[in-house]
């Protein structure tokens, strides 16, 4: 109950839970929420038994397609989605790491063509439990700790 008071309830929309607190703004950025016109409430540093510390985002009147929401797995691999209609959670979903990621992350290799020419970055996901990316262009491998999200 207390949690619900901290981040106000929404009538219809999506609540994204179990985001690591330090990834909150990255999730906002990846989903393009800073440009959204929907009503958005978010909070961070909530206590979580599993994660120690988590963030929550609630977006009114907005639902996400799977491949849209799965992009956040790069920074929030354990995020959970609550789909809300009429104040009721009608569906719960977990995010899944996609096989291929385009345009979100930046290749860590400064000599990579994707950092030199004006092109969209592309990565193959070669491991999902601990997200590991391989650049489609320079083939350099980046592990979870080193993933850089593009601005």
């Amino acid at each position: 109950m207390q949690k619900e008071l901290k981040v106000s309830a929404i009538k219809n929309g999506t609540a994204i839970d179990h985001i690591p607190s330090n990834a909150l703004f990255k999730v906002i950025q990846i989903l393009g929420l800073e440009k959204s016109e929907h009503q958005i409430t978010f909070g961070m540093n909530f206590e979580s038994k599993r994660m120690g510390n988590k963030a929550i985002i609630k977006i009114a009147d907005r639902y996400f397609k799977d491949d849209e929401i799965n992009r956040i797995t790069l920074v929030a691999p354990n995020a959970k989605l609550n789909i809300i209609r009429d104040y009721e959670v009608i569906e719960k979903k977990v995010v899944e790491v996609p096989d291929f990621i385009e345009g979100i992350a930046k290749c860590i290799n400064p000599k990579c063509v994707s950092n030199i020419e004006n092109i969209k970055s592309k990565f193959k996901v070669i491991a999902k439990d601990k997200v590991t990316l391989q650049c489609h262009y320079c083939e350099r491998i980046t592990n979870q700790e080193n993933i850089i999200i593009k601005n």
Partner: peptide, 9 residues
């Protein structure tokens, strides 16, 4: 090319 990934591109 000296740029890595240039040939794929």
């Amino acid at each position: 090319h000296h740029i890595e990934g240039a040939a794929r591109y």
